[in-house]
Design a binder for these strands. Structure first.
Length: 124
DNA sequence: TTTCTTACA
DNA sequence: TGTAAGTA
């Protein structure tokens, strides 16, 4: 299938599909015209990519993860031992980000708590 | 008409 | 990420 159908079937914008390819996540065939020709396997790959992006992984990490993952009726499972370690590392990174955001929110709360009543009454 | 690449905001 | 230009 070509770009338009792939975008429709996968629910991913054409722009994003080209971006995934640019990042090495996808490599559809090329027609003599230069047009991309996507396979059903590519469609599955895109579904996995979306799943992994939702899991908060970067495209760089996903590029490494994709060849090392199995798909049990829609549920992704790692098939390489080293991948498990890498995913744990990603999880730790997320935890640090969450902690950083908690700190930011706490500081913001402090600022908001300092707002005078007259200002609060006129605020949205 | 559709898709391509490249480039800029 | 969205969009526009200029092609094949």
């Amino acid at each position: 299938m070509r770009m338009k159908e792939m975008a429709r079937r996968s629910g991913v914008h054409e722009r994003s599909l080209r971006y995934y390819e640019q990042q090495g996540l996808l490599s559809p065939e090329r027609l003599p015209s230069g047009y991309r020709e996507y396979s059903e396997a590519d469609l599955e790959t895109v579904r996995r990519i979306r799943c992994l992006l939702t899991a908060g992984l970067s495209t760089a990490v996903i590029a490494q993860v994709l060849p090392c993952i199995r798909d049990d009726d829609g549920r992704l499972a790692p098939t390489c031992p080293n991948l498990v370690g890498q995913l744990r590392t990603e999880r730790e990174r997320m935890t640090r980000e969450i902690d950083a955001l908690r700190t930011s929110r706490s500081l913001l709360d402090t600022v908001l708590d300092a707002a005078p009543r007259d200002v609060l009454s006129r605020a949205g």
